[in-house]
Design a protein around this nucleic acid. Sequence first.
DNA 1: TGAAGTATGTGCGGTGTCGTACAGAGAATT
DNA 2: AATTCTCTGTACGACACCGCACATACTTCA
Lengths: 242, 242
Amino acid sequence: MHHLKGPQQNHLLAALPVDVNERLYPHMEFVELPLGKVLYESGDTLRYVYFPTNSIVSLLYVMESGASAEISVVGKEGLIGVALFMGGDSTTSRAIVQSAGQAYRLLAQRMKDEFNRHGVLLHTLLRYTQALITQMAQTAVCNRHHSIDQQLCRWLLLSLDRLEGNELVMTQELIANMLGVRREGVTDAAGRLQRLGVIEYHRGHIQVLNRAKLESLSCECYAVVRKESDRLLPWAKNTAKV
Amino acid sequence: MHHLKGPQQNHLLAALPVDVNERLYPHMEFVELPLGKVLYESGDTLRYVYFPTNSIVSLLYVMESGASAEISVVGKEGLIGVALFMGGDSTTSRAIVQSAGQAYRLLAQRMKDEFNRHGVLLHTLLRYTQALITQMAQTAVCNRHHSIDQQLCRWLLLSLDRLEGNELVMTQELIANMLGVRREGVTDAAGRLQRLGVIEYHRGHIQVLNRAKLESLSCECYAVVRKESDRLLPWAKNTAKV
DNA sequence: TGAAGTATGTGCGGTGTCGTACAGAGAATT
DNA sequence: AATTCTCTGTACGACACCGCACATACTTCA
């Protein structure tokens, strides 16, 4: 009974046509998810994808300090383990049961088999998408926990990785819009970085003089995003500059 | 010359095999991206996917108040317009050029053609992934701009949408971990909601008494996520309760 | 019944960011 | 050369949230 009607309680599974259902359902396993259970840890290779029915799972990022921030919530509308079909096999977040209940799960390999017939373009784009998702998640974490000074460092580094030289053409006003803070806050932070000899700026032009120092002043968020991008997009390793 | 070597400056395109290149490159268009140019607005149907070479594009969410927060940055490692192959055709964010430069673009329909041979499972999962991405992006925005009170409302609503009744089994300590704030902050906020008659709680059990009021006290983030989920996952419309 | 553990309430000083206002200095325009 | 505009620097009170300490009340279990 579970194997026919049960999985349909998950809206995602219910939306699939019968032929897909017939391929997948025989391999689905019914599981109880107790409160607090960790489905996967940051960095773990995913062993299953989970389709919740009446349970809720949180995706959260745990910082080096131990502080954490929820990135998103998943219930019967979705699944846990997008990294699997994205092609990354793991994420930088932890999945933890927020509300006890039931779910169905599918072995990782089964899921991957469904995708492996598809083309290279698909897989390439999906891997990139996962890198993008990591960046978004880390932005959320950073907004919650880090100072403007740290966020400015992160932001400068992310931009630098995408440019040729060491100069950014960007006013403090615009940076403030990006970070979602006051322009004056950026002025303060940038002033401090300049006094430390890390950057030098003048009316919309920012030169990075000491990239190593900039990295050390940044929060962990830059390194997390960078490392994950290098992992997921090995063909695009942005060589560090200076 | 541009049509053969140029696009390869984008790492994503460079990573694709020759047969895909041969299909795509003839349709690629070289474009200049001046600083501040808006590639698409929130809600716009995407007309192109952009592959930056030496330009940088920011994805940012603009709030009703006009305040904004950058969700992520895209350069030559990626592309602008993941919503297109995700199946959503539009996003809740704006894409704006952060650093002037060049890019190659491809008509939306060309991109979709590449994917339309693939199965329903794929499309379903990708649409869900886009909904998840929206939630992450909104979490980032919310962390930047809204009070604990507002965030608690958003969080309660997101959880409620995934449960049957009106009761949440959840301590304030755990909610604090999810939101990335102090437990005392949640106690204060929850106390205020209780005094307003919106919720009632007792040692790990939270009853929502007035959902409409809860929605009005929440920031726009809940509605944005909810609306976008309904749009992307029409099969999963979580009927509002109470 | 008593003790230990868990969940919530409250107070207080510290600090990071905000909102606002205004000043100065370089660039662009006339 | 004078004016206007843009970008950056500085100051100050307000406030939200933090870290910490401790009190209270309910629950569990010996």
